Lab assay of single mutants.
Amino acid sequence: ATNIVGKVKWYNSTKNAGFIEQDNGGKDVFVHKSAVDAAGLHSLEEGQDVIFDLEEKQGKAYAVNLRIK
């Protein structure tokens, strides 16, 4: 899926990971530091509006192509 709108639920820069809550009510999506880095960002803030694509690896959904809304 592409161009999904959501809000950062939480992001821990020590653990280099967090979750994004989908505005469409879907399951929360894992976001890794690699996606944050690829977006040219240093970190994510709780409640921040984002747009992202979903990629599945080994049955788990990940946020990729992250951008700030």
Score class of each variant (00 low, 15 high):
N12R: 08
V29A: 04
Y62Q: 11
V8I: 09
V5M: 13
F19D: 01
A63D: 03
S13E: 11
V31H: 01
T14K: 14
V64R: 05
E45M: 13
A1T: 13
G40A: 05
G47S: 05
A39R: 02
V29F: 05
L66G: 00
S43D: 11
N3R: 07
D53K: 02
D28A: 08
G6H: 00
F19V: 12
T2S: 10
D37K: 14
A35N: 04
D49Y: 15
D53R: 02
N12E: 07
A63M: 02
L66E: 01
A38P: 02
D37H: 14
G6A: 02
A39T: 05
F19H: 04
L44C: 02
K57F: 13
L44D: 00
G6V: 02
A1P: 10
F52A: 01
F30M: 07
H32K: 08
I20K: 00
I4T: 04
V31A: 01
G18C: 03
K9I: 06
D23I: 15
Q58I: 07
H32P: 07
D49P: 14
L54N: 01
A39K: 03
A17K: 09
D37G: 07
V64D: 03
E21L: 12
L54V: 12
Y62T: 09
S13P: 14
G25Q: 06
Q22P: 15
K60R: 13
F19S: 06
E45D: 10
A1H: 13
I20N: 00
A35M: 06
D37R: 14
G40E: 05
N24G: 12
K27A: 12
S34I: 08
D53I: 03
V5A: 14
A1R: 14
N16P: 03
I51L: 10
H42V: 12
I68V: 13
I20G: 00
N3A: 08
E55R: 11
L44P: 01
A17Q: 14
H42N: 12
V50D: 00
G59M: 05
E46D: 08
A35L: 03
Y62M: 10
Q48A: 09
L41Y: 09
F19G: 03
E55L: 13
V5H: 15
D53A: 03
D23C: 15
K69D: 09
I20D: 00
L41E: 04
G25K: 07
L44I: 07
Q48C: 08
Y11A: 04
L41G: 03
N3K: 06
I51V: 11
F30K: 04
G6E: 00
N65T: 02
K60N: 08
N16L: 09
I51P: 00
D49T: 15
Q58E: 13
K60W: 11
A63H: 02
E55A: 12
E55M: 14
V8K: 00
V5T: 15
S34F: 10
K60A: 07
G59T: 04
V8Q: 00
E56N: 10
K15V: 11
N12D: 13
A38S: 08
F30T: 03
T14P: 05
G18P: 01
G6L: 02
K69G: 11
D28Y: 10
Q48R: 05
K60V: 09
I20F: 04
E21K: 15
F30A: 05
Y11W: 13
A1S: 12
V50L: 11
S13I: 12
N16C: 12
E21W: 10
I20P: 00
V36C: 02
S43K: 12
S43Q: 11
K27R: 12
T14L: 13
K9N: 02
D37T: 14
A63C: 04
V31Q: 00
S13G: 10
G25N: 08
N24M: 10
G40N: 08
G40T: 03
F52N: 00
G25I: 06
D23M: 15
T2I: 13
A39G: 05
H42K: 13
L66N: 00
F19A: 07
G18A: 03
K27D: 10
E55I: 14
Q48Y: 06
R67E: 04
G47P: 00
T2H: 12
L44F: 05
H32N: 10
N16V: 04
N16Q: 14
I68W: 05
E56Y: 15
T2D: 06
G18H: 02
N3L: 05
K60L: 10
N12M: 07
K60I: 09
V64A: 06
G25C: 08
V29Q: 01
E46I: 15
G59V: 01
I68S: 07
E55F: 14
D53W: 04
G47C: 08
D23G: 14
V50Q: 00
E45G: 08
F30H: 05
H42F: 11
A1K: 14
K15L: 15
K33F: 09
N65P: 00
F30E: 06
L54I: 15
K7H: 10
G25Y: 07
G40V: 03
K69I: 14
W10T: 05
D53N: 05
A63E: 02
N24K: 10
A17F: 15
V8D: 01
A35V: 08
K15N: 08
A17G: 15
D37M: 14
N16F: 09
Y11E: 02
K15Q: 10
G47L: 03
K7I: 07
G6T: 01
K15S: 09
N12F: 06
K15Y: 13
E21Y: 11
A63P: 03
E21D: 05
S43E: 10
K69N: 11
G6Y: 01
A17P: 01
G26Q: 10
Y11L: 11
R67F: 04
N12I: 07
D23A: 15
A39W: 02
D37A: 13
N3I: 03
E21T: 15
H42D: 12
Q48T: 10
E46H: 14
I68E: 04
G18E: 00
S34K: 10
G26W: 07
A61L: 14
K27H: 10
D28H: 09
